[in-house]
């Protein structure tokens, strides 16, 4: 079972919801797919094992290269250039499509592994914690996300903390999800960004539920939209200064008796949608 947590807007409360659900669901696994800004692990004290993630990039054998420039012309990402009569690779632009190797008529290109970041794994109480980090300057973390998703344990509940936005990395994160939770905040900005992720979950035909975080007197902004799109609201997390402070110190607010009930209620609602 995979449950993905997403929100178009940054700072809406995705990670708050994800880490606290993990904390309260027995034996559940936490998978942080926000590999550009991985903050989820700050909530779980653990020792982490790291594993490098590689992609394939071309390596040119200059003894065989005749400088015909077919590979340079083929590369749509401009990762290969004609550098003073020699083909040169810019690994940071390479998408690992393998095209250069295919077009080379002189067998001068092989593919070698290039690290783009790593994934880490740790234990917190009875939970498995996974996450990854993309190296600064690398364009795409899709390979890291796909490796992370493959760590999901089919026998258990896996909570997937998605990246912000609605780009390809979010698509990769939710592709196998059985249920998606959208997290929004009651402002017109929150609504605008909720519309974007809702479009995405609709495209993928996902079963979804909505949580309003920082709930206040303006919840109707989000509720009205949910009504017109027939989205069930599975929970509210009211704005509270104490909660905000605990969370900003990277503490699990569901360990606090005042805030635990919000998350228990959300879990009860999820149970009506999927088997936990």
């Amino acid at each position: 079972m995979q449950i993905a947590i997403l929100s178009g807007k940054g700072g809406a409360g995705k990670t708050l919801v994800a880490v606290n659900l993990v904390n309260l669901i027995n034996l559940s696994t936490y998978i942080d797919c926000d590999v550009e800004e991985p903050n989820g692990k700050l909530y779980f004290s653990s020792e982490y094992n790291k594993k490098d993630i590689n992609v394939l990039v071309p390596k040119i054998n200059y003894k065989k290269c005749t400088h015909c420039n077919k590979c340079v012309d083929f590369c749509r990402y401009n990762a290969l250039i004609d550098f003073l009569g020699k083909v040169k690779l810019l690994p940071s632009l390479c998408h690992s499509c393998g095209g250069c190797k295919l077009v080379c008529e002189f067998d001068a290109i092989t593919e070698v592994k290039e690290p783009i970041g790593y994934i880490y794994q740790g234990d917190y109480k009875y939970h498995q914690i996974y996450g990854g980090e993309l190296k600064i300057g690398k364009e795409s973390g899709i390979e890291i996300i796909s490796q992370l998703i493959s760590k999901a344990d089919k026998e258990k509940i896996n909570i997937i903390d998605c990246p912000p936005g609605n780009g390809c990395s979010v698509m990769e994160s939710i592709e196998q999800a059985d249920y998606c939770i959208l997290v929004s905040e009651p402002t017109i900005f929150g609504l605008e960004n909720l519309k974007l992720v809702h479009e995405l979950t609709t495209l993928y035909n996902k079963n979804i539920g909505l949580i309003i975080n920082k709930a206040n007197d303006y919840n109707n902004i989000i509720e009205d939209f949910a009504k017109t799109k027939d989205i069930s609201i599975i929970g509210y997390i009211p704005f509270d200064k104490e909660l905000a402070k605990l969370n900003s110190n990277q503490q699990l607010v569901s360990d606090n008796n005042k805030f635990k009930p919000y998350f228990i209620k959300i879990i009860e609602q999820i149970k009506q949608e999927v088997d936990l």
Binding site: F74, Y77, H95, C97, G98, G99, L102, V103, C168, M171
Partner: peptide, 13 residues
């Protein structure tokens, strides 16, 4: 179309 990165490999092969 959501997964295609436009690399051109399929067209070549």
């Amino acid at each position: 179309p959501y997964k295609c990165e436009g690399c051109g490999v399929c067209g070549f092969v």
